[in-house]
Computed example of a mutant assay.
Amino acid sequence: MSASTPSPGPAQNRNGDRFHARNTANLTAELLVLHEDDVIRHPCQMADISVGGCAVRVSLDRPEEITVAVLRMQDTSGEVDIEVAGRLCWNQQTSVGSNTFGFQFRRLMDPNLIDHMVSAGLVTRRQETRIQLGTPIQVRRAHGKPVLSQATLEDFSTTGVRIHADKELDVAERLLLTTSSGASGSVSVKWIKPCGDQFECGCIFQNLNSARAINDALAS
């Protein structure tokens, strides 16, 4: 596969979408830099990617001298083999001897290539790993709102949860979740959509204590 400029269409609206590297053990990357007459290979680790650029973690001696480079990405199955030219546009030190660099592509990448990487499990929209669960949970709403008689916590992460409820909730509504073990945490509703005869709801934790309480209870 090679990077190319996508044809005009709905996919162009995804230029700003950023996908986080999900399994870096299966996705290898390297920066190819021309130095005098030699091509120097710098192994790097993908952090995230969009059709317009990406962020990579790499150790470089003189990054300010690198104006143009080629980024090559491959997966262990051999289905993904992408080379794209671009330039370093920012850097942030993340550890001793290693920085995270912003790499801007010279041409927009075909969104279908990123779709393929998502399907292969190499990148994901979610920054935090979600743990699938599917367990009953108690949900308390503010006084005066209809009481939920049934709610299921479908998955959770360090930043939020996804639940199914028997009644429609409100975006921005605050809820108090209580697990079967008695642990409680407050969340705020970010989105909701119908799901059969129930409603699917995505929520984020209101504070760190809530996130810890719910995650510790559900992960044990």
Rank of each mutant, 00 (worst) to 15 (best):
M1S: 04
A3M: 04
S4M: 07
S4P: 01
T5K: 11
T5G: 00
R14V: 03
N15R: 11
G16R: 09
D17C: 06
R18C: 05
N23F: 07
T24E: 06
T28Y: 05
L32R: 02
V33W: 04
E36G: 07
D37V: 00
D38L: 10
P43G: 03
D48L: 04
R57K: 09
R57T: 00
S59E: 01
P63G: 07
E65V: 03
E65D: 10
V68L: 08
V70A: 05
V70G: 01
V70S: 03
Q74A: 12
D75Q: 07
S77C: 05
S77L: 08
E79T: 05
E79Y: 08
D81F: 13
V84S: 06
G86S: 08
R87G: 10
L88R: 14
C89E: 14
N91D: 10
Q92P: 02
S95H: 01
G97H: 06
N99R: 15
F101G: 00
F103A: 06
R107I: 03
D110E: 14
L113V: 09
D115W: 02
H116I: 04
M117S: 03
S119P: 00
A120Q: 05
V123L: 07
T124V: 03
T124Q: 11
R126S: 13
T129N: 11
T129Y: 12
L133I: 08
V139G: 04
V147H: 14
L148W: 02
Q150M: 14
Q150G: 10
E154T: 14
T158I: 14
T158K: 15
T159I: 13
V161H: 10
H164D: 12
R174C: 09
L177C: 05
S180T: 14
S180C: 12
S181F: 03
V187A: 12
V189W: 15
K190L: 15
W191G: 09
C195H: 15
F199N: 12
F199V: 11
E200S: 15
E200F: 13
G202Y: 03
N207R: 11
A213W: 09
A213K: 04
L218N: 07
A219D: 08
